[in-house]
Design a protein around this nucleic acid. Structure first.
Lengths: 183, 207
DNA sequence: AGTTTACTTTGCAAAGC
DNA sequence: GCTTTAAAAAGTAAACT
């Protein structure tokens, strides 16, 4: 029957934005508080915000990366908040700029224990090295995502740029496991 | 052209030098790990295949040699952990693992994960445990596998815990510390594994 | 003995070595 | 390849109580 029980939980979203104008990172690092900036260590300025609990990496080129959001809305909100902070120090930042979701990490539960040894032998495109990591790596082509399958039945899906693909990835994985009687 | 000819000689000379170096490294590491000739031969075949398919680009010879040996050990069921390979090869564990995965993919080497059972004879002999204890440990491991208690767990930890339980059951007890040392894991891991095994399998004993 | 913290794996962007 | 960010899964490790 229509098992719509796949409750996928988004755990992390990576998004990027292009402001189209160079940014003076030194100026920003002096003006903002929760900032870390070591040019020699990493070219980006690390800015952590509390509202949507996220971290942003701001680059001199005018591009930024936002990580840690648990929803697309929060990710966009975090970027806008960050850009507004940059504006307080550096006006002339355009009103319109591109925001792109780059990666979504989601978790799910198949609610059934998994025999990873069997899955590794039967399922295609897998990597399973329990000596190095307890999860089995399964690469899907159709939604181009990567899943980590655990003996507990818990699953992690990463690589999706749209929440729908993360859900589809888990759904197809579940179906494939059923097809192969590996449920 | 003479220049082109000289270039070829130079290149093949370097290639031969690299191969000679790789094979001597392979032998040095294999000796330190007491690996039988079959494993060394398997490893050298894997290494030569890697060279033929030009898989060494961007990787150090040491890394590929270590990964080839690790793969050969698994293929021959004479397992050696990544830690052991890393320790004597001087290559970081992470590098050995990464290169192994790369070689396995490119050379279509598909090896099932090492079974905890494969570690039993080696650990048992280093601990001076009898064949009876080994058989008991293997019996425990098989039960654990059927009940899904080995998925995701490190093979050495499972083997160590099974040997610990078997040694106690057959009155040839070894301490967790002794077993942890030969298995190259911590006492906490042995504790976690044997607690799980004794609680989920009917082994007739409560520790 | 048990606890806490930290690291392993996957995916991704950013600028530069 | 690396550097930095974030977060989940489950196992293992090192350091402490």
């Amino acid at each position: 029957m229509g098992e719509n029980d796949l409750e996928i939980e988004i755990e992390n979203i990576v998004a990027s934005a292009t402001l189209g104008r160079p940014i003076d990172l030194s100026k920003i690092s002096k003006a903002l508080k929760s900032v870390n900036f070591n040019r020699k260590q990493f070219p980006g300025l690390v800015y952590k915000l509390d509202k949507p609990k996220t971290a942003a990496l701001i680059f001199g080129s005018g591009k930024l990366v936002c990580t840690g959001a648990k929803s697309v809305e929060d990710s966009i909100k975090a970027i806008k908040t960050t850009v507004n902070k940059i504006r307080e120090v550096d006006p002339d930042i355009p009103e319109d700029y591109e925001i792109k979701i780059q990666n979504i990490v989601a978790s799910a539960n198949l609610s059934k224990p998994l025999n990873l040894d069997e899955i590794a032998m039967t399922l295609e495109n897998t990597e399973y090295e329990p000596e190095q990591f307890p999860g089995l790596v399964y690469r899907l082509d159709k939604p181009k995502v990567v899943l980590l399958l655990f003996g507990s039945g818990k699953v992690v899906c990463t690589g999706a740029r749209d929440p729908k693909d993360a859900k589809l990835g888990v759904k197809k994985t579940k179906e494939r496991l059923k097809e192969l009687n590996l449920i | 052209r003479l220049r082109k000819w000289q270039r070829k000689i130079r290149i093949s000379g370097a290639t031969e030098r690299n191969l000679a170096f790789a094979l001597s490294e392979l032998d040095r590491i294999a000796s330190r790990l007491n690996l039988p000739r079959t494993v060394r031969e398997t490893a050298s075949v894997i290494y030569r295949d890697a060279v033929k398919k030009k898989l060494i680009r961007g990787r150090s010879i040491e890394e590929v040699v270590a990964a080839a040996l690790y793969a050969a050990c698994r293929k021959c069921n004479v397992p050696r952990t990544l830690d052991e390979i890393a320790e004597v090869s001087g290559v970081k564990k992470k590098g050995v693992g990464r290169t192994y995965r790369f070689l396995a993919r490119k050379l279509n080497i598909r090896l099932p994960p090492t079974s905890p059972i494969d570690y039993v004879p080696r650990f048992a002999s280093e601990l001076g445990l009898s064949g009876k204890v080994q058989s008991k440990a293997i019996e425990i491991i098989k039960k654990a596998m059927k009940k899904g208690l080995t998925s995701g767990r490190g093979p050495t930890g499972v083997a160590a815990a099974a040997l610990y339980i078997a040694s106690v059951l057959l009155r040839e007890r070894r301490t967790q510390r002794e077993i942890a040392e030969v298995a190259g894991i911590t006492e906490v891991t042995i504790r976690n594994r044997y607690r799980e095994l004794t609680s989920k399998l009917n082994l007739g004993v409560t520790f």
